[in-house]
Design a protein around this nucleic acid. Structure first.
Lengths: 236, 236
DNA sequence: TGAATAGTGTCTTTCAGACAATATTCT
DNA sequence: AGAATATTGTCTGAAAGACACTATTCA
């Protein structure tokens, strides 16, 4: 039997049926705190609960493309840095049917997140740390109970972002194209959850080869303007 | 409509059908080189090609359990360190049907790998580096063409192992329970692909808090015996 | 001039690499 | 004693933290 004969005879229904989804943890640093985009579920299951934007993997797309589609569609965000970080697979994590979900980090600037969160069933909820774990703070200030295992997914996303803060350029997705070293430091401080030594941080960043001066300055406030930098093309 | 009514009415067939699999990159350091367990495919598709041991996700198990089952079953390995590292999802990566595969690192000692590779349709193939990419060296010395995208999976696995060498204790899976600092250094050197400064390496490892002296010594050769250490419980 | 922040200089500590010396075991 | 490897010590340079100083802009 040749391979093509075999494939013609093949019955896909013999495989256990599983759905594959992408869930995007769309984050931004807003006023010294990490926030994450949540959408209130309009349908069962978990109707009325806050959940991550996500999408089912379609036959003709790979996971990266599915994540981009979820970001542009449900999340209403274009131009996010998207990165796969882990699969979530507890057999009962979705009551409908077996769903294996691939978690994606989505990094955006505060204005993009706040615009995407504008609406009655959408919010940019604040992420709070308590020791090693996290919770999501609703608008009134109380802890939100999220749908499915989405709080686990968010926790894993933040842990991943923190672990890779110095090894990848992901965190630059949280900043606009041009930014000052102070902006960059603030982002690092929020992600690491502690303050950072300024001269050492500046030297380390400038020596990393990732930054490129634009020549422009940030003339925003009543004080000395800071140099604007951008992420160097091809930097990793 | 209540949530349970909704679930009773729900039709799982409405979801796109995808199979989820786990592929395990089972590795060991054998004679100063990384080797990976390959199994010759007995069936179409890709019959006769060398492939990674893997398994389809079953309804009642999560991915970690599926990886453990693949390791114990197809790979014939018990007691491996198993760790998820990335999902592979190109739509045409399997000609049968849509398969999203979750890659797992499997770290074992050389004796375990060689025992698992004992058989006509099994081998422990050497991984070779050429610049940034990798290839798999067969027994005659030539490059093997692997089934599906399994060479990509292996490359990603080695890259991941290297990236996380100092941040996780994964690499200790490549060593027996008790080992000398020299053994540990050799493993690091093979993974990093370059030699390591001995005093600095020793100090760094001993200061890491991951090691625990056993009090025993390795009286193997015609020279001064080395202290034996073990991985401290709970070390990360 | 004062407020506020940007950016730099210096000192100190920590850590890793280079190199070499000492220690221990077996033949 | 000699071979072989384990283990430690010392020097040096790089990097980061602490702290304080200078620089620049606007009100």
């Amino acid at each position: 039997m040749t391979e093509s004969d075999f494939l013609n005879d093949y019955d896909p229904a013999a495989f256990p049926s599983v759905a594959v989804a992408v869930d995007v943890v769309m984050m931004a640093v807003v006023e010294q705190a990490l926030r994450v985009l949540l959408i209130k579920r309009a349908e069962h299951p978990a109707r009325g609960r806050w959940a991550l934007p996500g999408s089912l993997l379609q036959p003709d797309e790979d996971l990266d493309r599915c994540a981009a589609r979820a970001a542009a569609g449900k999340a209403q965000v274009d131009r996010a840095v998207l990165r796969q970080f882990r699969a979530f697979s507890a057999p009962d994590r979705d009551p409908r049917l077996r769903v294996v979900s691939i978690g994606y980090l989505g990094l955006v600037t505060p204005d993009v997140l706040l615009r995407a969160a504008d609406g009655e069933h959408r919010m940019a909820a604040e992420l709070r740390r308590t020791g090693e774990s996290f919770y999501v703070r609703g608008e009134g200030g109380g802890r939100l109970t999220l749908a499915f295992d989405h709080l686990d997914i968010i926790s894993a996303a933040v842990a991943q972002l923190r672990r890779d803060l110095d090894r990848t350029t992901d965190a630059f997705g949280l900043l606009p194209t041009e930014f000052t070293l102070r902006d960059l430091q603030r982002v690092h401080e929020v992600i690491r959850g502690e303050s950072v030594n300024k001269p050492a941080f500046r030297k380390r960043m400038l020596d990393s080869g990732r930054l490129e001066p634009t020549g422009r300055k940030d003339t925003g406030g009543p004080f000395r303007p800071a140099e604007l930098y951008r992420l160097r093309k091809g930097a990793q």
